[in-house]
Amino acid sequence: MGHDEYIDWKLLVCRMNGELSKEEEQKFLTWLAKDTRRKAYYERMVAEWNSDTIRESDMSRELAKLDQFLYLQRKKGHQVMLRRRWLKWSVAAVLLVGLISSVYMLQRMRVEILEKTSVAVITPGKSKAILILSDGTSVNL
């Protein structure tokens, strides 16, 4: 896990008590901005802290939950990235197979058309061309 996924619980406690320096406040805000779920977690933690139901021994359990949460989120993000990568490669492979198939089919059709086309050989010096006029009369050329 990256070092930016964890935050010192003392920093969280100082934040809840309003005792952070400017540098610590910036560090906290940077950590908080990395994921929207961190804000929800922090707000839930503040609510429990303010309700006097949480004790320092509970804090380590809550922080362990946060660590587990962050680990699972990172793992899910990695799986999503792998799925996207596989999807991109799959789409590229399908497009490549489609392109190759199209080229093959067009080439095959061209060969079939050339085989079916017959060319009449007209030898020079013979009058085999006939012009048919609009009134139906035909003229040998």
Rank of each mutant, 00 (worst) to 15 (best):
K10F: 15
A33P: 02
R83C: 08
R74N: 11
T53N: 11
R83H: 12
I130L: 00
D35P: 10
K65A: 09
Q73Y: 04
P124K: 01
V139H: 03
P124S: 01
E62I: 12
S127F: 06
A40Q: 05
L95V: 01
E24Q: 13
M45D: 05
W86F: 15
T137D: 09
N50K: 05
K22Q: 14
K39T: 10
L70K: 10
V46E: 04
V111E: 03
G77M: 05
A120Y: 09
L96V: 03
G98V: 00
K10N: 15
D35I: 03
R83G: 06
R55I: 08
W86N: 15
G2W: 01
N140A: 03
R85S: 05
F69E: 07
I130T: 07
E19I: 10
L95F: 00
W9P: 15
Y42L: 03
N17H: 06
N17G: 14
D52G: 07
A40H: 13
V97R: 01
K126N: 06
C14E: 11
S90M: 11
E24A: 14
T123F: 11
F69K: 01
L12M: 11
I7C: 04
E19F: 12
Y71T: 04
V80A: 12
V111Q: 13
L96G: 00
V111N: 08
Q26N: 13
M105F: 01
Y6C: 12
T36C: 00
K116F: 12
T36H: 04
W86K: 10
L20W: 15
L63R: 04
L70F: 15
S51C: 00
K34R: 14
Q26Y: 15
G18Q: 05
K88H: 10
I132H: 00
S101M: 07
E23C: 02
L32Q: 04
R37Q: 13
F69D: 05
W89C: 15
K34C: 13
L12K: 02
Q68L: 14
T123V: 09
V13Y: 10
W31F: 14
S90R: 06
I132A: 11
V121M: 10
K76Q: 14
L99G: 01
L12H: 02
I54F: 03
L95N: 00
